[in-house]
């Protein structure tokens, strides 16, 4: 299938982009690498009047360390994160997560911001950045605001973004030397969207012990309770209580999380 007709603009500054997104009547959509939006356009599941291509805005393509965080511009591609070569206070976690996203040809175009804005519950960044405790820096007509990942993803394909806003960057807190990262996706095929994701960050240096279950029907489940790392039964019960529904449907999520926990347990 071919996309329905749309107009296109490629502003060079963030202000121009915001102006384009603001002046329209909601028919404008920002686009970066078009790796999530492209299929939806081609299938005519999305039919925007105007695509605002934000990949030509230099500041959205930066990777930098800012204080105790890695700040990744919205238009940084998965492949760039995968390949490293940037100062990284997060111990290489973004590179490892990026390397598992879809396929290299998709990673070369797809961006961290685009993935978050799309907010597929099965997306790697939705799960991983929630577990990492990242903040999303949002730019809009009224300036910038920072939203914790746990609040940013509101539901399946739903974010906290308001009309006219775009993701500018993601701020990932530095991990301590003792931090351990566990990440397990249940996929039937390599590169397929996950059916159940378990992500665990154990960073005793910063007092973080976070379990995340993603790729369920809604927003990720976040469990910030150090006791749950050791107590499988309590963890399963907590996840089950949050996910609800059919035990058979919950099961892969429990398994994914259990295996992710095993990766952080020495």
């Amino acid at each position: 299938m071919k996309a329905a007709d749309f107009d296109y603009a490629a502003p060079r500054t963030l202000d121009d982009a915001l102006a384009l997104l603001a002046r329209d009547d909601g028919a404008a959509r920002p686009v970066a690498g078009s790796q999530s939006l492209g299929p939806m356009l081609n299938l005519r599941l999305a039919q925007p009047g105007l695509l605002v291509d934000i990949t030509r805005i230099p500041e959205l393509r930066d990777i930098a360390v800012d204080g105790d965080a890695l700040v990744v511009g919205a238009c940084v591609t998965h492949a760039r994160l995968e390949d490293g070569g940037y100062p990284d206070p997060t111990g290489g976690v973004p590179a490892r997560v990026a390397a598992g996203i879809a396929y290299r040809a998709v990673r070369n175009r797809g961006t961290i911001g685009g993935s978050l804005a799309h907010a597929d519950p099965a997306a790697d960044w939705v799960a991983a950045l929630t577990a990492l405790g990242a903040d999303v820096i949002v730019a809009g007509p009224h300036g910038r605001r920072s939203v914790a990942m746990a609040d940013f993803i509101v539901g399946a394909f739903e974010t906290d973004l308001r009309p006219g806003e775009i993701i500018a960057a993601v701020r990932i807190p530095a991990l301590s030397e003792r931090a351990r990262w566990g990440y397990v996706k249940v996929c039937r095929k390599t590169g397929e969207f996950s059916h159940a994701t378990g992500a665990v960050l154990a960073d005793p240096g910063r007092g973080v012990a976070r379990c995340v279950v993603a790729a369920a029907s809604g927003r990720p489940v976040v469990l910030d309770d150090p006791r749950l790392l050791a107590d499988a039964a309590a963890r399963d019960a907590a996840v089950a209580a949050r996910l609800g529904g059919d035990p058979a449907a919950i099961r892969p999520h429990l398994v994914a999380l259990r295996r992710a926990v095993a990766q952080v347990t020495p």
């Binding site: 299929p39 299938l43 039937r188 095929k189 390599t190 590169g191 397929e192 969207f193």
Partner: peptide
């Protein structure tokens, strides 16, 4: 199923 995202055919690793 209407795409290769939901109709799975075996790839290199399958």
């Amino acid at each position: 199923a209407s795409t290769f995202m939901d109709y799975l055919i075996p790839g290199f690793t399958e």
